[in-house]
Design a protein around this nucleic acid. Structure first.
Length: 422
RNA sequence: GUGAGUGUAGCCCAGUGGUCUAAGGCGCCAGGUUGUGGCCCUGGAUAUCGAGGGUUCAAAUCCCUCCACUCACCCCA
């Protein structure tokens, strides 16, 4: 690479003006949805102490083992750029004594997430997640609400043809027994598994279930199912959740191979995916993490949440050709005829802006023809033409760029005319 | 981290060893008479052909290394 060629680091992108309409659209829908369900926004630091993530996500997950951006700062602290959003929110909940607030506490965030991965479409080293957490209540109706909210959010964006996958992976009481029987089952097929699954068998038994190799999928299909091995409390919780989801007419399907990559999940896990899509198709997912807050040093506190990747949402909005409202630009353009009137043009622009009217100014060196072309390129609806003749009579020419009609109008009436067009 | 593909102006792309001091389209800029856009016409600017090195009389075209992107694995949003 040339010594003086600068490019954005691998896996990062500039979000250019042309893309911003998507971001603003999603941001706005997210905030609306959150308000509808009673969530308040929280912003946590971009970096945290490393052990917050290794303890919460799981020491032996891929995220912690090989994907974190970690470094030592000048004070010798082990720092990590946040690789997910839930643990920081839980840390903030504990640190700020939010258990003293009325429970549950409902928080949402929209934040940059950092993971050192090999970039692909829909996968970046810096990406953005919108997520929300409801902390301090174990009511399965809240699980249903969290899922319903995610679904409603995607619908409000105009995304269609999504599918909702659901599973329950039990709690610390019943999961060990389930994992033991799963392990037992897979040990019986050890020699037939793919090499990766051989490793998973030792390292992360649950993940055996979502291997994509056809043969491994056959084993997964007849493997013991977590939902069949729940303790009475978890079974009741899962039953109620499904009942509520049916009430809400959410088209979920229980997928017993659905497990998630972070260790803190308990009971409910779910994912939302487009019906067609490549490898990184999941646009959002979440679940319950009833032990996480306690694990981070808080009081035992049930909680659950959801997160979605903005870049993947945009990918799908484009794929489904959803029309996005454009970001408004100034409607008025001031052109000047002759260079002696620049002073007046500058004053006029400022006074209109002071009245809340968006204004662009023409480049003074351009011909009037070029200024009009410039106005057209910027999609101005009105062009104000100001020249020496106009200044003498205290008027301007107001040209409507859509109808190509124009009139001479007194300067004193201009503002009113632009604010209340006939 | 593994495997495969790709990389020519702001964008889309032609070009597979000499006629390439690189073609076309979009976009941009300017003109088509004196103070008026969009269509049309004419003209113009913009490319160290991803970077570095090598082979050759000759390289955008062949080889090597690196960088980036895309796809799959892996993982996940």
């Amino acid at each position: 690479m040339g010594a003086d060629v600068y490019q954005a680091p691998r896996g990062t992108v500039d979000i250019l003006p042309a893309e911003q309409a998507y971001w603003r659209y999603i941001e706005q829908k997210a905030a609306q949805t959150c308000q509808l369900y009673g969530y308040e926004r929280i912003d946590t630091p971009v970096f945290e102490n490393m052990n917050l993530f290794s303890r919460s996500i799981g020491e032996r997950t891929d995220i912690v083992e090989k994907e974190m951006y970690s470094f030592e700062d000048k004070g010798g602290n082990r720092i990590t750029l946040r690789p997910e959003g839930t643990a920081p929110v839980c840390r903030a909940y504990i640190e700020n004594g939010m258990h003293n607030q009325p429970q549950p506490v409902k928080l949402y965030y929209s934040a940059s997430i950092f993971r050192y991965e090999r970039p692909q479409a829909g996968r970046y080293r810096q990406h953005h997640q919108f997520g929300y957490e409801v902390i301090g209540d174990n009511d399965p109706a809240l699980d249903a609400e969290v899922i319903d909210m995610a679904w409603r959010f995607f619908e409000s964006l105009g995304l269609r043809r999504l599918k909702l996958l659901l599973n329950s992976i039990g709690c610390r009481k019943c999961r060990p027994d389930y994992l033991a029987s799963l392990r037992q089952y897979y040990i019986g097929h050890r020699d037939e598994l793919c090499p990766e699954c051989g490793v998973r068998l030792e390292k992360n038994t649950l993940r055996l279930l979502d291997c994509k190799k056809p043969l491994c999928q056959q084993f997964a299909a007849s493997a013991p199912r977590s939902a069949d091995c729940l303790c009475p409390d978890c079974a009741e919780h899962f039953n109620l959740l499904r009942k509520y989801l049916q009430q809400l007419e959410l088209p979920f399907s229980v997928n017993h191979c659905l497990v998630r990559g972070l260790d803190y999940y308990t009971r409910t896990v779910f994912e939302i995916q487009p019906q067609t899509g490549g490898a990184q198709s999941t646009i959002g997912g979440g679940g319950r993490y009833d032990d996480l807050i306690e694990g981070l040093g808080g009081k035992p506190t049930p909680a659950l949440g959801f997160a979605t990747g903005i870049e993947r949402i945009i990918l799908n909005l484009k794929k489904q050709q959803v029309a996005i409202p454009p970001i408004p630009t100034p409607e008025v353009f001031i052109a000047q005829a002759g260079d002696k009137v620049k002073n007046e043009a500058v004053k006029l622009a400022s006074s209109l802006r002071g009245a809340g009217i968006g204004v662009l100014q023409a480049s003074s060196s351009k011909s009037l023809k070029a200024q009009l072309r410039q106005a057209n390129n910027f999609s101005a609806h009105y062009v104000i033409i100001i020249g020496e003749e106009e200044i003498e009579t205290g008027t301007v020419i107001l040209r409507n760029m859509t109808t190509a009609e124009q009139e001479t109008i007194a300067l004193t009436k201009l503002q009113n005319r632009l604010q209340c067009p006939p």
